[in-house]
Computed example of a mutant assay.
Amino acid sequence: MQESSILLRDRDGDGILRLTLNDARRRNALSEAMLEELASAFAEAGADPSVRVVILGANGPAFCAGHDLKEMTAGREASDHGRGYFTKVMAMCSGVMQAILNCPKPVIAEVTGIATAAGCQLVASCDLAVAADTAQFSTPGVHIGLFCSTPMVALSRNVGSKHAMEMLLIGNMTSAARAAEIGLVNQVVSADALRETTLAMARTIASKSSMTLATGKRAFYAQREMPLAEAYDYASRVMVDNMLARDAEEGIGAFIEKRAPKWHDQ
């Protein structure tokens, strides 16, 4: 597939795929074109056995500024004043966020600059996030009369209710350090150390059994939505199936024998 100029695809070795938002002129906005590229890239990554971990980064001063408001405004020119167009774009965006969660490969956001509105949603939708100490996050829709309702879904599943509501109701920028305090990102490092820190995390994850990672990621998001007893029943079934898998037998055997495991990814 020919590489899109607005979404770059590179291999960092060790089964690590790097996706880079590359539309700095529009502050890496989630335009229709960008959403289509992201949907395609995550579908391909999920189906490619050579990909073990995905890093999502960005070029330019902004990680992602959210929806392309110029595109959204142009959509109002339709006879329905944009209802059909807005419905389509929201479905596309929601689909991308769910594609990240449904991708069997762990996804790490590597954040520089600002991540606002749906851009903040993008970070929150990733499994892990590492941010430069200069990064900032916000859900600023209230400033323009548009509550960040779809970003709220991912945000409220990452941080506590009061922290999420603070960001949603006030709309001001949240520093990288504060984002780490409330659980929106995992680590904050200097901009110079960001790429290597993210790569080190990705390499550590990539060294594990991809079967185990896919099993665990799927189970994590599934059980989170269940009542406690149902979650334990579900997780117990997952654990039994996992114990019967070839890599669990190999990993436990390697631990007992004090040797490095040889994964078969099954």
Rank of each mutant, 00 (worst) to 15 (best):
V107D: 03
C103T: 11
P106R: 10
A45Q: 03
D48C: 06
L155Y: 04
N158V: 11
A45F: 01
A117R: 00
A99V: 11
A124P: 07
V89E: 01
T87C: 05
V123Y: 02
H143G: 00
R83Q: 14
K88F: 06
M152D: 14
L56E: 11
P104V: 14
L38V: 07
Q98R: 15
H143E: 06
H163S: 13
A131M: 13
A58R: 04
A78D: 10
I100C: 08
V153L: 15
M90S: 12
I100K: 07
M72H: 08
G66V: 02
H67W: 10
M152P: 02
S156W: 06
M152A: 15
L122N: 05
N102V: 04
V96T: 07
C93Q: 12
F63Q: 04
K162A: 13
G145W: 08
D68C: 03
P140Y: 05
M152N: 11
R76L: 15
F63G: 02
P104I: 15
E36Y: 05
M97H: 11
A39C: 03
P151Y: 09
I114A: 03
Q121K: 07
A132V: 08
E37L: 00
N59C: 12
N158T: 12
A129T: 10
V153N: 10
D80R: 14
M72N: 02
A164Q: 03
A109F: 06
A132I: 08
A118M: 11
L35K: 01
M92F: 11
E37I: 00
K162G: 04
A164H: 07
C103P: 09
N158D: 11
A33E: 12
G60M: 06
